[in-house]
Amino acid sequence: MEDAVEKKMSPFKHMLNTGLILGVVSILFTVVTYLTGDIYKQNNWENWVSLLVSFVLVYYFTVKYRKEECENYLSYGQAFKFGWISMMISAAISLVFIMILQNVIEPDFMSKMMDVQREAMAEKGMSDAQIEAAIAFGKKFQSPAIVIIVGLVWSMIISLVISLITAIFAKRNRPVFE
């Protein structure tokens, strides 16, 4: 006779699934901006859309986890942890894709990006000497190790902020007196 009690998935499996979904969404967003050529532009609206999508998805999956696995109760700390770990899994997936994009799919990605930066600096009226100094400084940060480190630090900060904010809205404490 089978037990009627449903076996619940571990919290980490939920975080892993959420991180995988967020990572795939991030990769799709990157692919679209790459295929349209917008990846080389500094379009702030695309960054804001990506940030908004991250907020919405982290909130959605945290609430879904709360409802399905936590009897509709989740503390602020649990909600924060769920969002942050999910986003860090997503960040790792996205960074792997970025490395593949920059080193395999588009090996001259960084030089194209520097060309875009050079044009932007020239439009701002910087002298050739200033532009070359800025480009030389920027080249110091193009190694894969530096890109990964900066990407991880930036992802940790963004994930922290998104998780802190979404946890405010996704939490639901158990009533003190039941």
Rank of each mutant, 00 (worst) to 15 (best):
K41A: 14
H14R: 15
T33C: 01
I135T: 08
M87W: 15
E132S: 05
A134N: 10
M1N: 08
A167H: 08
S75C: 04
A120F: 12
I93D: 15
L35K: 08
I148G: 08
S94I: 04
A129S: 15
V150F: 15
A170K: 06
I131Y: 11
A136Y: 12
I158Q: 00
L57M: 14
S155M: 11
L57W: 02
T18W: 09
A167W: 10
V63P: 09
N44T: 10
G138I: 05
V32T: 02
I162M: 01
V176R: 14
Q42M: 07
E2V: 01
F61N: 03
D38W: 13
E46F: 14
M15C: 05
N43P: 05
Q130P: 00
K81L: 13
N43V: 03
D3G: 03
M15G: 03
A167D: 05
M114T: 02
A136M: 11
N44P: 07
A122K: 11
M126L: 10
Y60N: 07
E71A: 06
L164C: 02
M1P: 12
V53R: 05
L35D: 00
E178Q: 05
M88D: 01
S163T: 01
G83W: 10
T166K: 09
S163R: 06
G19T: 01
A170M: 07
D128W: 11
E119K: 09
M88A: 00
I148F: 14
P107A: 13
V5S: 09
M9Q: 14
Y76H: 00
A167E: 01
A167N: 09
K13D: 02
I85T: 02
G23L: 11
M126H: 03
E71I: 01
I162T: 04
A120K: 08
T33N: 08
P107Q: 11
L95E: 11
F109L: 00
A122D: 06
E106K: 01
V176Y: 14
K64V: 07
V116I: 12
V24Q: 08
N173Q: 12
L16N: 11
I93A: 11
F97A: 00
L74K: 02
N44R: 07
S127D: 01
F141C: 06
K41R: 09
E69L: 03
I105W: 05
F137W: 13
F82Q: 02
L57T: 01
A92L: 15
V49S: 02
W84C: 04
W48Q: 08
V25D: 07
N43M: 04
T62M: 04
S111E: 15
A92R: 14
S155C: 06
R172W: 05
N173A: 14
F177R: 06
G77A: 10
K139H: 07
A167L: 03
G19Y: 10
V32Q: 02
S26G: 15
Y40Q: 03
W48C: 07
K64W: 11
I93M: 07
S94W: 12
Y40P: 07
A170G: 09
P11M: 02
V31K: 10
L28A: 13
I21T: 10
V5I: 06
N44K: 04
I27N: 07
P107S: 08
I149R: 08
K41W: 10
T36P: 04
L74A: 03
I168V: 15
D108C: 01
G83Y: 13
K64E: 00
F61Q: 04
E6F: 12
K13A: 09
R174F: 08
L16C: 08
R66S: 05
S143M: 04
A129T: 13
L101T: 05
